[in-house]
């Protein structure tokens, strides 16, 4: 069992999220995170799935996803080098007496403070999964009130050798 990050390029049609999520749950795949957003090409969305499974079952996910008509491209990014970011918003208790400690902890993880109130702040932690999880653990003692997480977004690395470009520009829509 290993963690795999799968990148899916799909037509931006109504129902495509439902179709993808349905396939993943129907076949019993173990999905840790799923995120979706627009790309630079109008009409195309990118889904990022993080799944836990052995190589054979992950290959099955890739192949089954690839069969969906509206899915244009599926890549298991973990087969190669890639960059990945998670973002988590953490609302943490920060009354004046401990606020400097909270801010100091957030600083260690290079978090941004994006909201501040009477006795709580919202910090934005961005990074790979390990960093975001560590940050959450570090502020937990102060009293975490709410958390919202993005799930992973990822792209294959460009590198300096022969560039393995995803032919997004070539897709006719």
């Amino acid at each position: 069992m290993a963690i795999h990050t799968i990148s899916v390029l799909a037509q931006d049609n109504p129902g495509v999220l439902s179709r993808l999520a349905g396939l993943v749950s129907r076949r019993g795949y173990n999905v840790t995170s799923l995120s979706v957003g627009k790309t630079h090409r109008p009409g195309l969305s990118r889904f990022t799935l993080v799944v836990n499974g052995d190589d054979v079952s992950v290959e099955q996910i890739v192949r089954q996803l690839d069969k969906l008509i509206e899915i244009v491209e599926v890549r298991n990014l973990s087969e190669d080098k890639f960059v990945e970011r998670w973002m988590t918003l953490i609302k943490v208790r920060a009354p004046l007496d401990v606020r400097p400690h909270v801010l100091q902890t957030a600083e260690i993880f290079r978090c941004r403070i994006i909201d501040i109130g009477e006795d709580a702040i919202v910090i934005e932690a961005t990074g790979d999964r390990g960093k975001v999880e560590a940050c959450l653990e570090a502020v937990r003692p102060f009293g975490v009130i709410e958390v919202a997480s993005s799930g992973a977004v990822a792209l294959g690395r460009t590198g300096f050798g022969a560039r393995k470009e995803s032919p997004v520009a070539a897709i006719q829509l």
């Binding site: 799909a10 899915i71 244009v72």
Partner: peptide, 8 residues
Amino acid sequence: PALNFPGY
């Protein structure tokens, strides 16, 4: 019509 199924 022109068919538009880039994933199929």
